[in-house]
Amino acid sequence: MYSIICLIGLAGNGLVLLRYLYFKRLKTGTDYYMLNLAIADIVFLLTLPFWAVSTGYKWVFGNEICQVIYCLYKMSFISGMFLLMGVSIERYFAIVEAPSAHRHRSKTVLISKLSSVCIWVLAFTLSIPEMINSEVRNLNGKDTCIIISRDLQSLDAKLKIIQMVLGFLLPFIIMSFCYSMIIRTLLNARNFEKYKAIKVIIAIVIVFVVFQLPYNCVTLMKTISNTTVCTNSINLDLADDVTYSLACLRCCLNPFLYAIIGVKFRNDMCKFFKDLGCLSQEKFSQWSTAKPSKRSSFAMDTETTTTYSP
Protein backbone atom coordinates (compact mmCIF):
# COMPACT_ATOMS: atom_id res chain seq x y z
CA MET A 1 0.00 0.00 0.00
CA TYR A 2 2.78 2.46 0.92
CA SER A 3 4.72 1.70 -2.28
CA ILE A 4 1.67 2.05 -4.57
CA ILE A 5 0.56 5.29 -2.92
CA CYS A 6 4.11 6.67 -3.14
CA LEU A 7 4.53 5.95 -6.86
CA ILE A 8 1.09 7.18 -7.92
CA GLY A 9 1.25 10.21 -5.63
CA LEU A 10 4.72 11.30 -6.80
CA ALA A 11 3.65 11.00 -10.44
CA GLY A 12 0.44 12.98 -9.88
CA ASN A 13 1.92 15.71 -7.70
CA GLY A 14 4.92 15.91 -10.02
CA LEU A 15 2.50 16.82 -12.82
CA VAL A 16 0.95 19.47 -10.57
CA LEU A 17 4.39 21.04 -9.95
CA LEU A 18 5.21 20.76 -13.64
CA ARG A 19 1.98 22.47 -14.59
CA TYR A 20 2.65 25.48 -12.38
CA LEU A 21 6.29 25.87 -13.45
CA TYR A 22 6.05 24.90 -17.15
CA PHE A 23 3.06 27.14 -17.89
CA LYS A 24 4.09 29.81 -15.36
CA ARG A 25 0.71 29.71 -13.63
CA LEU A 26 1.90 31.36 -10.41
CA LYS A 27 -0.26 34.44 -10.76
CA THR A 28 -2.61 34.34 -7.77
CA GLY A 29 -2.39 33.63 -4.08
CA THR A 30 -4.21 30.33 -4.56
CA ASP A 31 -1.57 29.25 -7.09
CA TYR A 32 1.18 29.65 -4.49
CA TYR A 33 -0.83 27.82 -1.84
CA MET A 34 -1.55 24.93 -4.20
CA LEU A 35 2.10 24.76 -5.31
CA ASN A 36 3.18 24.50 -1.67
CA LEU A 37 0.44 21.91 -1.05
CA ALA A 38 1.87 19.75 -3.85
CA ILE A 39 5.34 20.12 -2.27
CA ALA A 40 3.92 19.13 1.13
CA ASP A 41 2.29 16.06 -0.41
CA ILE A 42 5.57 15.09 -2.09
CA VAL A 43 7.49 15.43 1.19
CA PHE A 44 4.85 13.28 2.86
CA LEU A 45 5.03 10.67 0.09
CA LEU A 46 8.83 10.48 0.29
CA THR A 47 8.56 9.20 3.85
CA LEU A 48 6.48 6.18 2.75
CA PRO A 49 9.37 4.07 1.32
CA PHE A 50 10.97 4.13 4.78
CA TRP A 51 7.77 2.80 6.35
CA ALA A 52 7.46 0.21 3.58
CA VAL A 53 10.94 -1.17 4.35
CA SER A 54 10.22 -1.08 8.08
CA THR A 55 6.93 -2.96 7.62
CA GLY A 56 8.31 -5.57 5.24
CA TYR A 57 11.63 -6.14 7.00
CA LYS A 58 12.68 -3.93 9.91
CA TRP A 59 13.92 -0.40 10.58
CA VAL A 60 17.47 -0.30 9.23
CA PHE A 61 18.03 3.45 8.97
CA GLY A 62 19.13 4.31 12.50
CA ASN A 63 17.68 6.43 15.29
CA GLU A 64 18.46 9.85 13.74
CA ILE A 65 16.69 9.03 10.46
CA CYS A 66 13.75 7.73 12.50
CA GLN A 67 13.41 11.15 14.13
CA VAL A 68 13.82 13.00 10.82
CA ILE A 69 11.20 10.88 9.04
CA TYR A 70 8.64 11.36 11.81
CA CYS A 71 9.35 15.09 11.79
CA LEU A 72 8.97 15.36 7.99
CA TYR A 73 5.79 13.31 8.04
CA LYS A 74 4.11 15.47 10.66
CA MET A 75 5.46 18.73 9.20
CA SER A 76 4.10 17.95 5.73
CA PHE A 77 0.78 16.83 7.21
CA ILE A 78 0.31 20.00 9.28
CA SER A 79 1.51 22.33 6.51
CA GLY A 80 -1.01 20.72 4.15
CA MET A 81 -3.81 21.50 6.60
CA PHE A 82 -2.76 25.14 6.96
CA LEU A 83 -2.30 25.55 3.20
CA LEU A 84 -5.84 24.30 2.58
CA MET A 85 -6.97 26.75 5.24
CA GLY A 86 -5.13 29.51 3.37
CA VAL A 87 -6.94 28.59 0.17
CA SER A 88 -10.31 28.68 1.91
CA ILE A 89 -9.57 32.10 3.45
CA GLU A 90 -8.50 33.57 0.12
CA ARG A 91 -11.55 32.13 -1.66
CA TYR A 92 -13.73 33.59 1.10
CA PHE A 93 -12.42 37.10 0.50
CA ALA A 94 -12.48 36.67 -3.31
CA ILE A 95 -16.16 35.63 -3.35
CA VAL A 96 -17.86 36.77 -0.15
CA GLU A 97 -15.87 40.02 0.20
CA ALA A 98 -15.38 40.57 -3.53
CA PRO A 99 -15.26 44.42 -3.58
CA SER A 100 -12.65 44.57 -0.82
CA ALA A 101 -10.63 41.73 -2.37
CA HIS A 102 -10.57 43.50 -5.74
CA ARG A 103 -9.11 46.66 -4.19
CA HIS A 104 -6.30 44.71 -2.52
CA ARG A 105 -5.63 42.26 -5.34
CA SER A 106 -2.01 43.40 -5.78
CA LYS A 107 -1.21 42.46 -2.17
CA THR A 108 -2.71 38.97 -2.38
CA VAL A 109 0.31 37.26 -3.97
CA LEU A 110 2.74 38.84 -1.49
CA ILE A 111 0.56 37.81 1.44
CA SER A 112 0.33 34.24 0.14
CA LYS A 113 4.14 34.04 -0.25
CA LEU A 114 4.77 35.31 3.27
CA SER A 115 2.05 33.17 4.81
CA SER A 116 3.38 30.07 3.02
CA VAL A 117 6.80 30.62 4.62
CA CYS A 118 5.16 31.16 8.02
CA ILE A 119 3.11 27.98 7.55
CA TRP A 120 6.25 25.88 6.96
CA VAL A 121 7.95 27.39 10.01
CA LEU A 122 4.88 26.79 12.18
CA ALA A 123 4.51 23.23 10.85
CA PHE A 124 8.11 22.46 11.75
CA THR A 125 7.60 23.90 15.26
CA LEU A 126 4.51 21.77 15.80
CA SER A 127 6.33 18.66 14.55
CA ILE A 128 9.02 18.90 17.27
CA PRO A 129 7.12 16.52 19.64
CA GLU A 130 7.37 13.80 16.96
CA MET A 131 11.08 14.36 16.63
CA ILE A 132 11.63 14.29 20.41
CA ASN A 133 9.47 11.26 21.17
CA SER A 134 10.45 8.97 18.27
CA GLU A 135 13.18 6.36 18.56
CA VAL A 136 14.13 2.87 17.40
CA ARG A 137 13.19 0.06 19.76
CA ASN A 138 13.29 -3.70 19.49
CA LEU A 139 9.75 -5.06 19.53
CA ASN A 140 9.29 -8.83 19.32
CA GLY A 141 12.81 -9.24 17.95
CA LYS A 142 12.35 -6.55 15.25
CA ASP A 143 13.80 -3.03 15.24
CA THR A 144 10.91 -0.58 14.87
CA CYS A 145 10.75 3.20 14.61
CA ILE A 146 7.96 4.26 16.96
CA ILE A 147 6.60 7.14 18.99
CA ILE A 148 7.21 6.51 22.69
CA SER A 149 3.94 6.69 24.60
CA ARG A 150 3.82 9.05 27.57
CA ASP A 151 1.19 9.53 30.23
CA LEU A 152 -1.32 12.33 29.77
CA GLN A 153 0.24 14.49 32.49
CA SER A 154 3.61 14.70 30.75
CA LEU A 155 4.70 17.81 28.88
CA ASP A 156 5.13 15.83 25.64
CA ALA A 157 1.52 14.63 25.72
CA LYS A 158 0.27 18.16 26.30
CA LEU A 159 2.37 19.38 23.37
CA LYS A 160 0.82 16.70 21.16
CA ILE A 161 -2.67 17.82 22.14
CA ILE A 162 -1.74 21.43 21.33
CA GLN A 163 -0.32 20.15 18.05
CA MET A 164 -3.62 18.49 17.11
CA VAL A 165 -5.71 21.49 18.15
CA LEU A 166 -3.60 24.00 16.19
CA GLY A 167 -2.65 21.68 13.33
CA PHE A 168 -6.05 20.16 12.64
CA LEU A 169 -9.00 21.45 14.67
CA LEU A 170 -8.36 25.16 14.09
CA PRO A 171 -7.89 24.84 10.28
CA PHE A 172 -10.94 22.56 10.13
CA ILE A 173 -13.15 25.12 11.90
CA ILE A 174 -11.90 28.00 9.72
CA MET A 175 -12.34 25.98 6.53
CA SER A 176 -15.88 24.99 7.54
CA PHE A 177 -16.81 28.61 8.21
CA CYS A 178 -15.27 29.94 4.99
CA TYR A 179 -16.82 27.31 2.73
CA SER A 180 -20.24 27.60 4.37
CA MET A 181 -20.18 31.37 3.72
CA ILE A 182 -18.99 30.79 0.15
CA ILE A 183 -21.82 28.34 -0.52
CA ARG A 184 -24.38 30.75 0.91
CA THR A 185 -23.03 33.56 -1.28
CA LEU A 186 -23.11 31.41 -4.41
CA LEU A 187 -26.65 30.23 -3.70
CA ASN A 188 -27.75 33.87 -3.62
CA ALA A 189 -25.98 34.64 -6.91
CA ARG A 190 -28.11 34.63 -10.05
CA ASN A 191 -25.97 32.76 -12.54
CA PHE A 192 -25.80 29.17 -13.70
CA GLU A 193 -22.11 28.78 -12.83
CA LYS A 194 -22.89 28.68 -9.12
CA TYR A 195 -23.98 25.04 -9.13
CA LYS A 196 -20.70 23.92 -10.67
CA ALA A 197 -18.76 25.93 -8.09
CA ILE A 198 -20.77 24.47 -5.21
CA LYS A 199 -20.10 20.93 -6.46
CA VAL A 200 -16.37 21.70 -6.46
CA ILE A 201 -16.47 23.01 -2.88
CA ILE A 202 -18.51 20.06 -1.65
CA ALA A 203 -16.00 17.66 -3.24
CA ILE A 204 -13.11 19.44 -1.51
CA VAL A 205 -14.76 19.32 1.91
CA ILE A 206 -15.89 15.67 1.57
CA VAL A 207 -12.40 14.47 0.58
CA PHE A 208 -10.88 16.47 3.41
CA VAL A 209 -13.24 15.10 6.06
CA VAL A 210 -13.36 11.47 4.87
CA PHE A 211 -9.60 11.03 4.60
CA GLN A 212 -8.25 13.26 7.37
CA LEU A 213 -10.77 13.35 10.19
CA PRO A 214 -10.69 9.60 11.12
CA TYR A 215 -6.90 9.57 11.44
CA ASN A 216 -6.87 12.65 13.67
CA CYS A 217 -9.61 11.19 15.87
CA VAL A 218 -7.64 7.95 16.34
CA THR A 219 -4.44 9.90 17.01
CA LEU A 220 -6.22 11.91 19.69
CA MET A 221 -7.59 8.72 21.26
CA LYS A 222 -4.13 7.17 21.35
CA THR A 223 -2.68 10.33 22.89
CA ILE A 224 -5.16 10.56 25.76
CA SER A 225 -5.51 6.79 26.24
CA ASN A 226 -3.63 5.30 29.17
CA THR A 227 -5.15 1.82 28.89
CA THR A 228 -3.25 -1.29 29.90
CA VAL A 229 -5.81 -3.67 28.36
CA CYS A 230 -4.13 -5.52 25.50
CA THR A 231 -7.30 -5.81 23.39
CA ASN A 232 -7.94 -2.06 23.51
CA SER A 233 -4.32 -1.36 22.58
CA ILE A 234 -4.46 -3.73 19.60
CA ASN A 235 -7.73 -2.19 18.38
CA LEU A 236 -6.25 1.30 18.57
CA ASP A 237 -3.16 0.16 16.64
CA LEU A 238 -5.33 -1.44 13.96
CA ALA A 239 -7.48 1.68 13.68
CA ASP A 240 -4.32 3.78 13.43
CA ASP A 241 -3.00 1.64 10.54
CA VAL A 242 -6.28 1.82 8.60
CA THR A 243 -6.90 5.55 9.06
CA TYR A 244 -3.23 6.37 8.37
CA SER A 245 -3.51 4.57 5.03
CA LEU A 246 -6.59 6.68 4.24
CA ALA A 247 -4.67 9.86 5.11
CA CYS A 248 -1.84 8.73 2.81
CA LEU A 249 -4.32 8.02 0.03
CA ARG A 250 -5.47 11.65 0.07
CA CYS A 251 -2.07 12.69 -1.31
CA CYS A 252 -2.78 10.53 -4.36
CA LEU A 253 -6.29 11.83 -4.83
CA ASN A 254 -5.47 15.54 -4.94
CA PRO A 255 -4.06 15.52 -8.52
CA PHE A 256 -7.00 13.43 -9.73
CA LEU A 257 -9.39 15.96 -8.19
CA TYR A 258 -7.60 18.72 -10.09
CA ALA A 259 -7.89 16.74 -13.33
CA ILE A 260 -11.59 16.00 -12.81
CA ILE A 261 -12.83 19.37 -11.57
CA GLY A 262 -10.10 21.74 -12.75
CA VAL A 263 -10.73 22.66 -16.39
CA LYS A 264 -7.55 24.68 -16.83
CA PHE A 265 -5.41 22.00 -15.20
CA ARG A 266 -6.81 19.40 -17.60
CA ASN A 267 -6.25 21.67 -20.59
CA ASP A 268 -2.67 22.43 -19.51
CA MET A 269 -1.85 18.74 -19.15
CA CYS A 270 -3.29 18.01 -22.59
CA LYS A 271 -1.21 20.82 -24.09
CA PHE A 272 1.93 19.62 -22.28
CA PHE A 273 1.61 16.07 -23.57
CA LYS A 274 0.81 17.43 -27.03
CA ASP A 275 4.03 19.50 -26.91
CA LEU A 276 5.93 16.31 -26.01
CA GLY A 277 4.40 14.53 -28.98
CA CYS A 278 2.53 12.07 -26.78
CA LEU A 279 -0.89 13.38 -27.78
CA SER A 280 -2.25 13.81 -31.28
CA GLN A 281 -4.11 16.90 -32.41
CA GLU A 282 -7.30 14.86 -32.64
CA LYS A 283 -7.01 13.59 -29.06
CA PHE A 284 -6.00 17.05 -27.87
CA SER A 285 -9.17 18.55 -29.37
CA GLN A 286 -11.22 15.73 -27.89
CA TRP A 287 -9.88 15.82 -24.34
CA SER A 288 -9.24 19.53 -23.85
CA THR A 289 -11.97 22.04 -23.27
CA ALA A 290 -12.45 25.18 -25.31
CA LYS A 291 -11.69 28.38 -23.48
CA PRO A 292 -14.94 29.72 -22.06
CA SER A 293 -16.34 32.88 -23.50
CA LYS A 294 -16.47 36.00 -21.39
CA ARG A 295 -19.55 36.35 -19.29
CA SER A 296 -20.32 38.54 -16.37
CA SER A 297 -17.39 39.31 -14.10
CA PHE A 298 -18.98 37.54 -11.17
CA ALA A 299 -19.63 34.40 -13.20
CA MET A 300 -16.01 34.27 -14.29
CA ASP A 301 -14.87 35.01 -10.75
CA THR A 302 -17.06 32.20 -9.45
CA GLU A 303 -15.81 29.72 -12.01
CA THR A 304 -12.11 30.44 -11.56
CA THR A 305 -11.78 31.23 -7.91
CA THR A 306 -13.56 28.19 -6.49
CA THR A 307 -11.63 25.50 -8.33
CA TYR A 308 -8.24 24.11 -7.36
CA SER A 309 -6.68 25.17 -10.65
CA PRO A 310 -7.80 28.71 -11.52
Score class of each variant (00 low, 15 high):
Val207Tyr: 07
Tyr244Ile: 05
Thr243Leu: 05
Leu213Arg: 06
Asn235Tyr: 15
Pro214Cys: 07
Leu220Gly: 09
Arg250Pro: 00
Asp268His: 07
Ser245His: 08
Cys270Ser: 10
Leu220Phe: 13
Leu246His: 04
Gln286Thr: 14
Cys217Asn: 06
Ser293Leu: 14
Leu257Gly: 10
Ser293Lys: 15
Cys270Ala: 13
Ser285Gln: 11
Asp268Val: 08
Leu246Trp: 07
Leu257Tyr: 05
Ser293Phe: 13
Asn267Gly: 05
Ser293His: 11
Asn216Ser: 07
Lys271Ile: 06
Thr219Asn: 04
Leu236Val: 06
Tyr244Met: 11
Ala259Ser: 12
Thr219Val: 03
Ala239Arg: 00
Arg250Leu: 12
Cys251Ser: 14
Tyr258Ser: 03
Asn226Leu: 13
Gly262Met: 01
Gly262Phe: 00
Asp237Glu: 14
Val209Trp: 09
Thr223Met: 09
Phe273Ile: 05
Leu249Glu: 01
Val205Ile: 13
Met221Val: 08
Thr219Gln: 06
Thr228Pro: 01
Asp241Thr: 13
Thr231Ile: 08
Ala239Ser: 12
Ile261Gly: 03
Ser288Pro: 01
Tyr244Cys: 11
Ser285His: 10
Leu257Arg: 03
Ala259Asn: 03
Gly262Asp: 02
Asp275Phe: 11
Thr289Glu: 14
Gln212Ala: 10
Phe272Trp: 08
Ser293Val: 11
Ala247Ile: 02
Ile260Arg: 08
Lys291Glu: 12
Gln286Pro: 01
Phe265Thr: 06
Ile204Leu: 13
Leu249Val: 02
Met221Pro: 00
Val207Thr: 12
Trp287Asn: 10
Val263Glu: 03
Pro255Asp: 04
Cys251Lys: 04
Cys252Trp: 02
Asn226Thr: 14
Cys251Asp: 03
Ala259Lys: 06
Ile224Trp: 09
Ser285Val: 03
Phe273Leu: 06
Phe208Lys: 01
Asn254Lys: 11
Ile206Arg: 10
Glu282Phe: 07
Ile260Trp: 11
Phe272Asp: 00
Gly262Ala: 06
Cys278Arg: 15
Phe273Ala: 08
Val210Phe: 06
Asp240Arg: 07
Phe256His: 09
